[in-house]
Design a protein around this nucleic acid. Sequence first.
DNA 1: GATGAATGAGCGTTCATTCAT
DNA 2: AATGAATGAACGCTCATTCAT
Lengths: 210, 210, 210, 210
Amino acid sequence: MGKLDMNKKIKRESILSTAFSIFTDKGVSKTSISEIVEKAGVAKGTFYLYFKDKYDLKNKLVSHQSSLIFKKALDALNENGKDKLEFEDRIIFIIDNIINQLSKNPRLLQFISKNLSWGIFKSAVTSLESDSDGEDEISFKYVYEKMLIENAPMVFDDPEMMLFIIVELVSSTIYSSILYKEPVEIQKLKPYLYRAVRMIIKNHEIEMKE
Amino acid sequence: MGKLDMNKKIKRESILSTAFSIFTDKGVSKTSISEIVEKAGVAKGTFYLYFKDKYDLKNKLVSHQSSLIFKKALDALNENGKDKLEFEDRIIFIIDNIINQLSKNPRLLQFISKNLSWGIFKSAVTSLESDSDGEDEISFKYVYEKMLIENAPMVFDDPEMMLFIIVELVSSTIYSSILYKEPVEIQKLKPYLYRAVRMIIKNHEIEMKE
Amino acid sequence: MGKLDMNKKIKRESILSTAFSIFTDKGVSKTSISEIVEKAGVAKGTFYLYFKDKYDLKNKLVSHQSSLIFKKALDALNENGKDKLEFEDRIIFIIDNIINQLSKNPRLLQFISKNLSWGIFKSAVTSLESDSDGEDEISFKYVYEKMLIENAPMVFDDPEMMLFIIVELVSSTIYSSILYKEPVEIQKLKPYLYRAVRMIIKNHEIEMKE
Amino acid sequence: MGKLDMNKKIKRESILSTAFSIFTDKGVSKTSISEIVEKAGVAKGTFYLYFKDKYDLKNKLVSHQSSLIFKKALDALNENGKDKLEFEDRIIFIIDNIINQLSKNPRLLQFISKNLSWGIFKSAVTSLESDSDGEDEISFKYVYEKMLIENAPMVFDDPEMMLFIIVELVSSTIYSSILYKEPVEIQKLKPYLYRAVRMIIKNHEIEMKE
DNA sequence: GATGAATGAGCGTTCATTCAT
DNA sequence: AATGAATGAACGCTCATTCAT
């Protein structure tokens, strides 16, 4: 990579990381492009070389950050010997890992907030597969199929909906619990939440695969 | 109430109803105070006599509209003879009624959006009791206690958390389903959702009350 | 007119006269709204209370200034006893008066420039009749019909086209002559121009009216 | 011409032809240099190697295109046996040819617009004579003198002014007629216009040359 | 000569808020 | 209480121009 390309990458990265920092600090709508470029140390025009507008930038950040979280959780699962875990436990493991990540970084949770839901999940599943920037990104479609359809010892009644219900339930409850400790703090919520998740899974099981 | 008080009330009501109409039509952030007062037929300055800013107005509308929805659901429950229903079925009845209301009015769902969740629920429970505007508002605390604690034939393990989990699960999933038909339309989601709700309730039951 | 209305009028007039001054000084496209309001001593927002944008303002100025020029010429014609003049001479009188006005004010000529042509003439004829601001404006349609159709001692072959040709010829030649003295200064151009105009008129005459 | 000079020429020509295409398509002021260089396939900096700014480029195009139009008209005159035509008819022939060219290409008329008037005529006469790019350009001074002074069978009273008046009259009227069909379309205007031109010429004749 | 990333002044426009009436 | 003209900071965005490579 030439010196010039290097510089390009640096400018872009500078905008991304600065924006992420401000977005998580005070929210997207209250952040102006002027503030981003000023703190990033680049000219206003430079912003428009790399992003269409503030929301283009935001979407790229949300996608990227969400991917990183999933990836970390999946990596942890693999390291910790997923083979030893039952299917249900693998799901819980991933959820637990993600919750722990977000508990340590509530600003990040605030930012991706309700975006870490079916929308992002679905778009990830359908589009990230061939993302050229995708070194750090993960193919959710692949994971989803591997984990639920192929590797699972069960046949599920509408596995996509099951997943949808779980994702929404988890993302929605932890938001309130982590950020506002309402109605209880996250550690107290966990056992109830995981019990609910397990029941939802059980409820979708049809039969053992052979 | 004097004629002057009457007039005052009228201006305020005009702003409220006009704002609600525009908010549901095009969203809060794209609506300016100028547009609200213009369509409401009052002067700009008048706005500031009754509301601090646009978000003060928005919050009041969200609270009010959410209350109306709950109230309608509870009224329907009472009319349809709640005594004949089991506790679980009463919960499902209310959820179903609310979903039906929102299905017919997706704009309203969009507006109160994810606000029809624990935040509003909790604030309703703790503050609406003595709201002076509260003629149409309902005391959720009262209902909540009547329905869950007193009248329920069970003792629940942490009933507040159970309610929290249900509220978040329902509000989060129907948002996606009603507005974007993702992953399925609301009628297809319902049986799965209600099954999940029933399981969560069962999961919190401890023992029959005597 | 109340004090408030008075103030309103003053602001608007201030913008108009300031803009006219700058427009004639350095052209419309090189003038920014910022400069106008700054020199007019009003806030930027005030501009948008009275004008849609810079071109709305420009059009209003062109129309208004053009009308004033025509009106002055017609007034002079009436004062100087138009009854004594032949039809042809009346046309020349008006042209000469307008040329003299513009000679003394080349900036104004520059500004309304090629706008004082068939476009403005036609739109004046068709729309100014009922203009509510029209105290100072003149009804060109009325003048045109009175002068050419009714009062003229001739019947003309297509009087509208005759007028069109004359207006274009005059406005186009004097622009170059007054502003750049090319190919000759206006006083040297006049006799040739007027001879041409008279020939064009004669060329359209069909017969004496009875 | 070396390969490098060749390449240089190619970049310049590419900018010129691309700019002409965009200018006629959407107007000069709405066209940015970015768009020109992008579509021309050259770098932004390259633009400034050949042109001072957008208006330098525009002026060069207007001159060039106007010259081409005149040249075509003169070529047609020569091909069609100008010797057989009277002087007056030769002028009309040229005018008619130019009008026909522009009728078929109103975008071009819009572009050179009112520039196809005395300004360009004069600058052509005085400066194009020695233009180094002038292979395709024509020496108007030469033509003008040949046609009007030397070859004409008449002596004219101030031939330059006569020409000026004709050029302005024609360019000004056809602009409105071709582009807006106001007050009539070009075919209906022609007979009146040509009659006016003939009268202007006649009016400048002094006597037969011997 | 050619490039194109970077610049940053400047644009038109919006709009919440104020305050004299 | 009610008004609405006036404000001006702040916005997103454009684009001609520069200059290191």
